[in-house]
């Protein structure tokens, strides 16, 4: 999987590339509009992460360019401005998703996985990891062939764990993933704890092994 990170903050793009590199993504970095345009013309990417504010241009223009040349890459807009207008404009121009700074790398990773899944329609809507099978079309999950009787939120949680498998995920980033934009308005660590407890119970009931590990009681890791 090839990913282009168009971001003028070198430290941020470096961290993104490093994090995604561990998930078998190949990341290339462009820190301005011009070099990004060059790379897009010469390469096929599965997903492009696009910062709106670039030193020599607007990410939305780059998006227009991409769409007019029928580029097949999925696009996730990254914006520091978190403005609704940017979001709407970006999605209207054909971006697949929008993520506002600051974001957790695990969240970005989950979004990228979702975009790539949606782009690959050739029967790849199923993810298999260990004894787990996730059908992202039907939004259902199976353990050893047994369907898990889980809520929407628990499904999201499991998918998030699987996409970010073998990584330490803090309660905070899990909470932010589950509640979307609104996490800043309440402390939802209790919710995370409750959801994980229920999810673990349901996986166990369906005959799955214990994969979700508590790390020092402060974060979780899906080990597989």
């Amino acid at each position: 999987m090839k990913i282009l990170v168009v971001e003028d903050e070198d430290k941020l793009s470096g961290n993104i590339a490093a994090y995604l590199g561990k998930e078998n993504y190949v990341c290339e970095i462009s820190s301005d509009y011009r070099s990004a345009l060059c790379r897009i013309e010469g390469n096929d990417y599965d997903c492009i992460l696009l910062d709106i504010t670039l030193p020599d241009g607007n990410g939305l223009d780059l998006l227009r360019e991409l769409k007019s040349s029928d580029n097949a890459a999925g696009v996730i807009i990254i914006s520091a401005r978190n403005a609704l207008d940017d979001k709407i404009a970006g999605l209207n121009l054909g971006a697949d998703d929008y993520i506002a700074k600051p974001f957790h790398l695990s969240e970005l990773s989950a979004r990228i996985a979702a975009v790539i899944r949606r782009r690959q329609f050739n029967g790849n809507s199923k993810i298999t990891t260990g004894e787990f099978l996730i059908d992202t079309d039907a939004r259902t999950a199976f353990v050893n062939g047994n369907k898990l009787d889980i809520t929407k939120t628990q499904y999201e949680l499991l998918l998030y764990f699987i996409v970010n498998k073998n990584r330490v995920l803090s309660k905070m980033e899990i909470a932010e993933h589950l509640s979307g934009d609104e996490v800043e308005y309440y402390d939802s660590l209790d919710v995370v704890y409750a959801h994980i407890k229920n999810l673990k119970k349901k996986i166990a009931t369906a005959g799955g092994n214990e994969h979700i590990k508590s790390i020092y009681g402060m974060g979780y890791k899906f080990e597989i």
């Binding site: 903050e9 430290k11 941020l12 961290n15 993104i16 490093a18 994090y19 561990k22 520091a80 401005r81 978190n82 506002a100 700074k101 600051p102 974001f103 957790h104 790398l105 695990s106 990584r167 330490v168 995920l169 803090s170 980033e173 790390i215 020092y216 402060m218 974060g219």
Partner: peptide
Amino acid sequence: LQTPLALMRSDLDMLWQTSPITEEQAKLLQ
């Protein structure tokens, strides 16, 4: 402020992934 906060967060996320993390470090990271 969003950009420095984003940088800090991504650094923290990377830091979480390093190992070994002692209990003391984890507490601080948390």
